[in-house]
Design a protein around this nucleic acid. Structure first.
Lengths: 244, 244
DNA sequence: CGGACGTCAACGGCATGCAGAACGCGGCGC
DNA sequence: GCGCCGCGTTCTGCATGCCGTTGACGTCCG
């Protein structure tokens, strides 16, 4: 039995399992989460489960009830839009910091490489969406590294805890949509412009681009909502409430 | 024994007590936090203490060790500056949202009232700093309410978990500083300009003002660092490291 | 027939005991 | 004298039992 929160720890197991149960809708939103049944279901004891519950509550996926216990949060479309806008603001700050704090062009090596690979993916007649999402995530992670700020990194980490707020979540669900390629082209254009702005040390422009880049996810959200099959692929879709 | 996380709960007691111990430097930064001794010291069992440790780790005050256990985080001046800048970005977003989402002037009643009271405090020849800090906090809380966004509210809540990043922390410690009144005048001017911008629906301007308002805290930080007695009043001062 | 009270069952919070792992120390070998 | 290995202590993570509270149901009284 390892001591730390390493993978394989019961707490980690409970956290990951619980998060997955929430995302796939196995736990109904706005309903009390039963502590005992869940422990059996996840194969862990109640102690690590309670730690996992506290973690997801911090992330905003659960809400603590005044009388004790937790409920799964549900999100209106406005909530999702807010979360995306917030991510844009934070990534905008990361982009600005990256531009302002760049010490040598060598630091951009990762970002440049990923951008090049993304170009190649988008250039395909039928781009592999899965590959794009993977590289997209790497791009965004590299940007956060360049920001050189633990505070910003933590804030972004919290912001993307909501599944539909993360950079690639809305992309991954629209494999069947027709406007898919156009969205990819625009996104990649923004990636390249953002890279240029950071390289040139144009912090304010980098911030604006990153914000607008996140707003692409809002557009994707609308597209996904119009398509039932795409909606089913969206992680965390059961947490959305169409009607308020 | 109450069921929820109400005040009086052992977990709450542990969390508050632990946070206070960290802020006052009773636990040395970068040193392992002993779990057993702490439980005795706080008068709680290890189970609620571990929940409190997890909470403070989420807030960024503690860091989980790979081998298990936690250490108190230490912060460089750059870290503090980043945290303040981040708070500015988030409050800027809150201000923009407030301006964009204002439905009726009546919603501003709280903010207007607090601003008026702040005027009165600053108008005094020797303003009561304590009173100013209290009203200042109320002003910032009212702004967050006007933003009408849970996501932004949570992000700001996380950002101000670091004590020296919160709006009034740096003010409260400088009761003896000579430039105190000037800072108050500037801060209150910004409060009023921000209120005007929100009232007029000028989102972008409101955002800019809120950002710059937060940067006043950076100036205060420099002032506090030059004064030993002020530094001693600063909550969480033991977590700062002058040398890297 | 409706409301209020009493009882009951279930649930969540807390304390504690136990087992496994990491760190430190002493001894041994080179 | 230095480095390595083995052992022990100590600490953390986990499981579980107990207790208090809470909400619900049934019953009784008005």
């Amino acid at each position: 039995m390892p001591r730390g929160d390493v993978a394989g720890s019961q707490t980690t197991k409970a956290t990951l399992g619980l998060r997955e149960l929430v995302f796939e809708g196995a736990l109904a939103p706005d309903e009390r989460v039963p502590e005992v049944g869940l422990a059996d279901r996840l194969g862990v004891s109640r102690t690590p489960l309670r730690l996992a519950l506290a973690t997801l509550a911090h992330e905003g996926l659960l809400r603590a009830l005044p009388g004790g216990g937790f409920v799964v949060c549900s999100f209106s479309l406005d909530d999702v839009a807010d979360a995306i806008e917030l991510r844009g603001v934070l990534e905008g700050t990361a982009a600005r910091f990256a531009a302002e704090r760049l010490e040598s062009p060598a630091e951009l090596a990762d970002l440049v490489a990923v951008t090049g690979q993304l170009d190649a993916v988008v250039a395909e007649p039928t781009p592999l969406l899965e590959r794009f999402v993977e590289l997209n995530d790497r791009y965004h992670r590299a940007l956060v590294v360049l920001a050189k700020s633990d505070a910003v990194a933590r804030a972004i980490g919290n912001a993307v805890a909501l599944p539909f707020a993360s950079p690639g979540a809305l992309l991954a669900s629209q494999a069947t949509l027709t406007r898919e390629r156009e969205v990819l082209v625009v996104a990649q254009h923004q990636h390249r412009m953002l890279l240029e702005a950071v390289e040139a040390g144009h912090g304010s422009r980098a911030e604006d681009i990153a914000r607008e880049h996140a707003r692409l996810a809002k557009l994707n959200l609308e597209l996904v909502l119009e398509s039932e099959p795409a909606l089913e692929r969206l992680p965390g879709a059961p947490l959305l409430r169409r009607v308020v």
